[in-house]
Design a protein around this nucleic acid. Structure first.
Lengths: 229, 229
DNA sequence: GAGTGGTCTAGACCACGTT
DNA sequence: ACGTGGTCTAGACCACTCT
């Protein structure tokens, strides 16, 4: 039986768990490990590279590989489009446009997205429903200089969410999670009481270096975003 | 100049962005791509493997590689220990123990952690402060069958958070984010009004398959957890 | 059965960072 | 200058899965 990179990952994790290799301790070099495990250096390399990417090891040329001082773990979240998320729960998805207007970027938005003041933007507000119940309130701004074709798009049947992922298949983004109190408008659309604590996700998106869109998503009361890691 | 796996990733991303390879489209096989890029198959393999891990491609033996139908992106969050998080903001960290008691697991906890009813657990409540202001309220339960040494640990100076990462350097975990309204107890400890919307993180942790701890962390009002991806 | 990705090997050269 | 990780190569065998 040959040694796989998974075997090596497991063994290194064991040694860290047992305390053989405590925080800050330097591991043997890849060549030495390859010899002890009886495998090629590439195999050791892949194992250690993945552990480093998972946040458990620090690697530097010349200095070698060390166990991280504070083993910060990295959680990964899949951010699906809203329709998918609802359908994956086995619920029926419905979409409704609430507001659609062209205007010039207000100051706070220009600052947030890195736009010049006076940049034309499209402001879209819409609702996503699951089994007829309010699921998510979407408040989106799109930079019309980056995506002028938004002006010719009818968002009464297609959500800007889906239209964007079809138009821009990937992008750089910054995402944030926080908690907000429902105001009168949110409580009305989401069918909750004013002051109710709502989970909020905000996201700024760039495409080829240019700011494209900024969105705030407000989830139904009690929503929980979860993952394993 | 040789073709690197980064070159290939960039080129594949370009083709997806341009629409050459739309959602659902099958890419050429690794061997063909290696020939067109003029590089080894291993190089193509790494590029495509990483793109698949990032959520842009689907790969299956025999069927080959396809562009994902809904290009769900994956956001990664670093989950640091609380002290580190405060110190990284350039603020002074302080810790205080609020409650520490051994009891048997209540029903909801047993269900949540997968424990037998009657399992002894330690219930610890503590506060984390940043520059003297309440930063985080920690409500933790530890399975004493998995970590009996908790009984002999003094948590008045060391937070269970730090003690655990030192004792269990890594673990499997499930993590969730949500939003809650501050009750009387939380508002008192966090120095906010009742009903204020608070960001909450919960985490269940397993070590070697055994449930170890369950914790709810309540953050100060206005807290935002952010990342780029 | 056949085609695809998954992985390992043995060797090589390079980039970086410490000395 | 030198040791370490970072990456590429050419080849090989295997595991999965579709037909």
């Amino acid at each position: 039986m040959t040694t796989t990179f998974r075997d090596i990952k497991a063994d290194v994790l064991d040694r860290i768990a047992n305390g053989d290799w405590g925080p800050g301790v330097a591991l043997p070099s890849e060549m030495e490990l390859a010899k002890t495990y009886g495998c090629a250096r590439a195999t050791v390399n892949r194992a250690l590279r993945e552990l480093a990417e998972e946040g458990l090891l620090d690697r530097k040329r010349k200095s070698g590989t060390r166990v991280r001082m504070t083993p910060t773990r990295r959680a990964r979240f899949d951010i699906p489009i809203t329709r998918r998320e609802v359908e994956n729960r086995g619920e029926i998805y419905r979409y409704a446009l609430v507001w659609n207007e062209e205007k010039t970027a207000p100051g706070w938005l220009a600052a947030r997205m890195g736009l010049n003041t006076g940049t034309p933007v499209q402001h879209i507000i819409c609702m996503h429903y699951a089994d007829g119940n309010p699921f998510q309130y979407e408040d989106r701004w799109i930079n019309l200089l980056a995506l002028p074709q938004v002006r010719d798009t009818n968002f009464s049947t297609v959500s800007p969410n889906e239209w964007l992922v079809a138009t821009i298949p990937f992008s750089d983004a910054e995402i944030g999670f926080s908690s907000v109190s429902a105001d009168e408008n949110l409580s009305r659309h989401l069918g909750c009481a004013e002051q109710d604590a709502l989970f909020q996700m905000d996201r700024s998106t760039w495409f080829e270096g240019k700011p494209v869109t900024f969105v705030k998503l407000y989830f139904q009361r009690g929503y929980r975003m979860a993952t394993k890691y």
